[in-house]
Design a binder for these strands. Structure first.
Lengths: 141, 141
DNA sequence: TATGTTATTGCAAAAAGTTGCAATAAGGAA
DNA sequence: TTCCTTATTGCAACTTTTTGCAATAACATA
């Protein structure tokens, strides 16, 4: 239960509290490193903290996302998955084999600026998932 | 029940069938012109075709999306909404007032190409939603 | 126009996700 | 350390979405 990161100060600074439930969930996200569905998170975190409920998992994941400690992502089927917040990035997924890679946010910077100037909006964040065929599946098919 | 568009040939060409249920749902999407949740679609389409079930609405929306007649979009809360397929576009939504505007796909073309060349993927489609503050809310806050 | 094949639907049951509210516990102040 | 405030949790009920399967109805063919 001891991550190198200590997330508690980030929460306290915003007037929120660190709880055993949040710790367990952050721990799971932090150590898995990849996308997890709410059910995945529940399954793993529940082992560390038996009393934990699914309700709390859903609420906590949303809470962590709102506060920048976790990132939600859409993976094509309309359901959300979550991962621990690291550098800002997006996802590119193969429609054929399901393989998935990260897209650096830097790649989108100029498009972001163009979008801001054309729309007048000040962009804060985005949910971007790209789909295509990975190099391997382009040959095979 | 008579849209100007006749979607049946598009389905038949792919070996699928046009049914009363699909007609009702397409009609609703076509005439609303905006995003509708599955529940919205059910409510409206059910008036036109009383026997229609929610199961069919969910399945049909997914089916229409797979076949390019409808477009799914994520609107931030993790739930999908659908609209009739017109020109390819994305969405930009204000985090403060909820106002929403379309983003032309053309704006992303060059980024798309860059992404293709860097990743080796051949892009097919994407689910993109941008969030930010609209011009009005930038002043107010 | 009648017939056969099979894509599609409705039903019922299950799974996934949400909500309201009373009980609990984090953590600042005494 | 104890007390107090209130953010957070668990529970139970509810809504939304998914799934398997038998019955139905499109529509190509004769």
């Amino acid at each position: 239960m001891s991550c190198s990161e200590d997330y508690a100060p980030q929460l306290r600074a915003r007037g929120y509290r660190m709880t055993l439930q949040r710790m367990a969930i952050l721990h799971v996200l932090h150590h898995s490193g990849k996308h997890l569905s709410p059910a995945d998170v529940y399954e793993k975190a529940h082992k560390e903290l038996p009393g934990l409920t699914e309700t709390t998992v859903y609420r906590t994941l949303e809470f962590l996302a709102e506060n920048g400690l976790a990132r939600p992502a859409h993976m094509g089927n309309g359901h959300l998955v979550y991962e621990i917040a690291r550098h800002e990035h997006h996802h590119l997924k193969c429609r054929n084999c399901g393989d998935e890679m990260e897209v650096e946010h830097a790649l989108l910077k100029s498009m972001y600026r163009k979008l801001e100037s054309e729309s007048g909006y000040q962009l804060t964040d985005s949910h971007l998932t790209f789909f295509g065929l990975c190099p391997g599946c382009q040959k095979g098919d």
